[in-house]
Design a protein around this nucleic acid. Structure first.
Length: 721
DNA sequence: TAAAGTGAGGTTTTT
DNA sequence: CCTCACTTTA
């Protein structure tokens, strides 16, 4: 294979980054400048040109999706076996290390991973046992506190309470929680990282082994690293290791969960001999979109400074639409997308972005009404769904009876007459004897510590589980899962559930079976049984890929989850003060700047056309709220925008009030509002509304079929009658 | 013990 | 307005 393949289609700066031979490398890569590409090509270059073994490379990303994508790209670029190549998320890699060195990390061999819901439940359990008032000390807040502490590398005994009552109290719970996790060998997400950090820093042999192994460490989205992640990277730095950090301080939007974009600056100081390469050529967006995004982000004080440019054409102006309310907003959005589709473009080229998930509802309703296919990202992920978590709890219990969280989850699911009272007795017994709920149940049944009714139900439950265990022995994973959801009664239970809900739950369970069929554990060690690998996978990978629809659909998502994606047509909704920037972020300058970066991220997702919509009035929490247009709107130079119908011919409100057809000429066209026209396909109708002018004019026509459509005037070939 | 009613609270998200 | 968690009732 020819090494030049690796350089094809790279620009000068990219090539410089890919082939840099300085001790360390920092790539400051603007949005759409080919940052993932640089990492993939650099790995390829290290392997193909410099003959590094894949074994000596480590690539770290933040999401599983990004890791998979990266791996795929690299493999297709190199075209050789990369079995020994570590490429994963921080958590995935930490997990791998802990599984390998569980003994040194003082864990049990079969330690379990707590996802955030499991963690929440455990914390609740701890609070209860401490007799804490739940209303005064919400478990959610405690969870947040503990995770924050772990992100900052602090154990419970390392917090400085001073005489702060709040911290003192939090620390107490943290301590209890820590002990419980220790006792049951439970590891939450933060713990994966912190424990790995401690494992390596207290184990010189292990540390130098990995320091020697990893000659090149490459980190994507560096601006999103938090304290513990940074320290982990720093710790792994050996005499010969060389680091590549790629990031964009302007796209740091996760400060609120502990990410420190300042780690970029820290990197240049801690890793001496760092070469800095800036990627400022954007391959994604038109000049107009880029100019607008640049002038918004320029208002931030704390920046490393960077200006994107492109070779692309100026492109269309940015449409600004002032909607009357959220319903009008949704109609405009859908209308714009429809005319996009009318021009023969695909629906999956379009994305509707919003600040908070709650905004998706109004949009969804209108899309649904128009019968367009759509897909909402975010929200509930596959392995987080209750029915899936329940099924997984059975599987966890089959794997190991000591799993109290799983036990509590399914002991009465489907309902089998074991209520809180019985469970309390079991809990108490377990606590007294300091062993698992399962063992406690065994003893209670033997020693007759229960009412006969509870005893019957409980022993039936336990016997069922034992039977299930023997039945699935030697079956392949898919069959195990299938068998489990059948025999546990979960399928029956959800089938009985009313309406749509029950049906989708049954479907999801079926999906779980097929996910199990497709599941391939990471090879590495044959010691771990596949069942355990599958359980870990479910905790570590929320399963964004699952149940994906393949039909070309409109994409709906929050601004946060749009990061890293691109779409030809992007519509950002809810561009209002108190919504975006969010009410809670306005007061503090640091948070406001993060909101602005979020805005920058959103705008730079657009390739060809960007629309920004704000509503004059919006129903929020059941109240009519009037918010002025977002300050970010004023930061976009007016010459880059077209305001659609502002102070113009049509007053939305009067139009709304009474389907009156407003009169008026549509600029630079031969059409007039209220005019009867005929369309080749849709037949005759009346022009109700318009926006834009000349070649860009779009008109709303109410056809005699009573259907109303937004059409591009220049494409629709409307003939006046 | 299981199903209907009451009331607070309602950024952003990954692992 | 809508969701959720928790409380009351059959």
């Amino acid at each position: 294979m020819d090494v030049s393949d690796i350089f094809d289609n790279l620009n000068e700066a990219q090539r410089q980054a890919v082939t840099s031979e300085s001790a360390h490398l920092l790539v400051l890569a603007g949005a759409g400048s080919g940052k993932t590409r640089v990492i993939a090509h650099r790995v390829a270059w290290l392997v193909k040109a410099l003959k590094n073994s894949p074994h000596s490379l480590l690539t770290v990303t933040f999401t599983n999706k990004a890791a998979n994508e990266m791996k795929g790209r690299i493999e297709s670029l190199i075209g050789q076996d990369m079995a020994d190549f570590w490429c994963g998320t921080f958590h995935g890699i930490a997990h791998r290390l802990l599984r390998r060195h569980w003994k040194e990390a003082s864990l049990r061999k079969e330690f379990a991973i707590l996802d955030s819901e499991d963690q929440y439940r455990v914390i609740k359990r701890v609070c209860k046992s401490m007799g804490l008032d739940e209303t005064k000390w919400p478990a959610k807040q405690i969870q947040w506190y503990i995770n924050k502490e772990k992100d900052e590398c602090r154990r419970a005994n390392q917090s400085e309470a001073g005489n702060d009552y709040f911290i003192e109290q939090m620390t107490k719970v943290y301590l209890e929680y820590e002990q419980l996790c220790e006792r049951e060998s439970l590891v939450d997400f933060g713990e994966l990282l912190l424990r790995t950090l401690i494992l390596l820093s207290t184990n010189q042999d292990l540390l130098s082994h990995y320091q020697k192994r990893f000659k090149h460490i490459l980190v994507d989205e560096f601006q999103d690293t938090n304290e513990v992640q940074y320290q982990l990277l720093f710790l792994l730095k050996g005499k010969e290791s060389s680091y590549t950090a790629v990031g964009d301080d302007d796209q740091s939007i996760y400060g609120w969960r502990g990410a420190k974009s300042d780690n970029i600056n820290r990197f240049t100081q801690d890793f001496s001999g760092t070469d800095i390469v800036r990627l400022e050529q954007n391959y994604r967006s038109t000049q107009t979109i880029l100019d607008a995004a640049n002038s918004v982000i320029k208002n931030n004080q704390s920046r490393m400074g960077k200006e994107l440019w492109t070779n692309q054409k100026e492109g269309e102006k940015i449409s600004i639409y002032s909607a009357y309310n959220e319903d009008d907003e949704a109609r405009y959005v859908v209308g714009t997308i429809q005319s996009w589709a009318d021009q023969g473009r695909a629906l999956d080229e379009t994305a509707i972005l919003y600040r908070s998930n709650a905004q998706s509802r109004a949009l969804e309703e209108v899309i649904l009404r128009e019968g367009l296919p759509y897909r909402i990202y975010g929200g509930q992920r596959f392995y987080e769904r209750v029915e899936i978590k329940n099924a997984m709890a059975y599987i966890r219990l089959i794997y190991g009876r000591e799993d109290d969280a799983a036990f509590e989850r399914v002991i009465n699911l489907p309902p089998r007459g074991i209520g809180t009272k019985t469970l309390d007795v079991i809990r108490k017994k377990a606590k007294e004897e300091n062993y698992s709920l399962w063992k406690a149940s065994c003893d209670l049944i033997k020693n007759d510590g229960l009412t006969s009714r509870a005893r019957g139900s409980l022993s039936r439950f336990m016997k069922d589980l034992e039977n299930l265990q023997t039945e699935i022995e030697n079956l392949e994973l898919k069959k195990v899962v299938d068998h489990t959801i059948q025999r546990s009664g979960l399928i029956e239970y959800h089938k009985k559930e009313a309406g749509e809900k029950g049906r989708t739950r049954v479907e999801n369970l079926a999906e779980l079976v097929s996910a199990a069929g497709d599941f391939e554990p990471e090879l590495e060690d044959e010691e771990t049984p596949i069942l355990k690998s599958f359980i870990d996978h479910a905790a570590l990978d929320a399963g964004e890929e699952q149940a994906e629809e393949h039909e070309s659909a409109i994409q709906l998502m929050t601004l946060h989850s749009a990061k890293g994606l691109e779409f030809p047509l992007v519509l950002i909704t809810g561009f209002e003060e108190n919504l975006f920037p969010h009410r809670l972020s306005i007061a503090e300058p640091g948070q406001l700047e993060e909101e602005r970066r979020l805005c920058y991220v959103g705008m730079t997702r657009a390739m060809e056309k960007l629309c920004i919509i704000h509503a004059e009035m919006r129903n929020l929490h059941g109240m009519e709220t009037f918010n002025p247009p977002s300050r970010f709107l004023r930061e976009i130079p007016p010459e880059l925008t077209v305001e659609i119908r502002t102070g113009g011919a049509v007053s939305r409100k009067s139009f709304e009030a009474k389907g009156i057809i407003v009169q008026g000429e549509i600029p630079e066209t031969d059409l007039v509002l209220g005019q009867r026209v005929v369309h080749e396909v849709f037949g005759e109708g009346v022009i109700l509304n318009y926006e834009g002018h000349g070649a860009n004019a779009r008109v709303e026509v109410n056809f005699d079929s009573s259907e109303t459509k937004w059409l591009m005037a220049s494409y629709a070939k409307l003939r006046p009658i």
